[in-house]
């Protein structure tokens, strides 16, 4: 497994001849097997950060390194889960999950074994030969998560993976992700604009400010989770009912609101 280091990263875009800073002076680390969530208002550059770790975008200044190596392009060692699921419509569930393994030229027996394991883990049994359009949004995202996990990547990059799901499905998927993270821990960078989701899932939450995207504060959730024994709860709503959870959530909300009013002035 690898860590991800953002070192004084800036990303500027030129639009209509104007120089826009999407991200400016961002430094933080996602440690090995740590789950870090970035929250922030839309347009704060959180997705840009993830894309730079994925190698789908590149910093104008500073550096992004994964496992000590600067990111030069996309690759299966840094698996991405997209908000739009990004499943291949012409491939079945199994073919989608198997695709990256085939590209890696793994032997058939190992591919079968691995795909089977994640079909089981993500509750996709019975849907193996379905095409994506035959599945609900929640099921489609399960396939996308399985497709990422099955590659056994050094880091997982999730860009608002539950953003387009309905509230109930979203909660189920959050619980599933927590379970999956316990079975096979990974270095995860998770982007969301949902504060509760970030506090529920992450070890640390990075709060970003709006344009240019900078880091406002980094909140250590893992310590509170340990001290307050959130893990004894099976369900999202029970964790969210904990006073310590409410306190953290409100703290992050205040940070985001302050920025908003600052921006409006």
């Amino acid at each position: 497994m690898s860590n991800i280091i953002f070192d004084r990263v800036a990303r500027h875009f030129r639009r209509n001849g104007v120089d826009l800073a999407a991200v400016d002076g961002v430094s933080f680390e996602v440690r090995k097997s740590e789950f870090v969530a970035i929250v922030g208002p839309s347009g704060c550059g959180k997705t840009t950060c993830l894309r730079m770790a994925a190698g789908l975008d590149f910093p104008t200044a500073g550096s992004v390194t994964v496992g000590g190596k600067p990111v030069t392009g996309p690759g299966p060692d840094r698996s991405v889960v997209f908000q739009q699921f990004a499943l291949f419509p012409w491939k079945t569930v199994v073919e989608n999950i198997d695709f990256g393994l085939r590209a890696a030229r793994l032997p058939l027996t190992e591919r079968r074994e691995r795909v089977g394991r994640y079909v089981d883990l993500m509750g996709l049994k019975g849907h193996e030969s379905a095409f994506p359009h035959q599945l609900s949004g929640g099921m489609q995202q399960r396939v996308a998560i399985a497709r990422s996990y099955v590659l056994d990547p050094d880091v997982l990059l999730m860009d608002e993976p539950f953003g387009s799901l309905d509230a109930q499905t979203r909660v189920v998927m959050q619980e599933e992700l927590i379970k999956l993270a316990r079975v096979s821990p990974r270095t995860v960078l998770f982007i969301t604009h949902a504060v509760e989701e970030a506090v529920y899932l992450a070890d640390r939450v990075v709060v970003m400010t709006r344009r240019p995207g900078r880091i406002g504060e980094i909140i250590d959730v893992a310590k509170v989770r340990m001290d307050e024994h959130w893990d004894r709860h099976e369900r999202v709503e029970d964790v969210m009912d904990e006073a310590s959870f409410v306190h953290l959530r409100t703290h992050i909300w205040r940070l985001l609101r302050e920025q908003q009013s600052r921006n409006e002035q």
Partner: peptide, 24 residues
Amino acid sequence: YLIEAARSLGIRGAMLVREVLFPG
């Protein structure tokens, strides 16, 4: 995002043309 997903999965060359670009 489909092409980005393919590249992130390590799909390149003939496989990209045959299984992503052509069916797409």
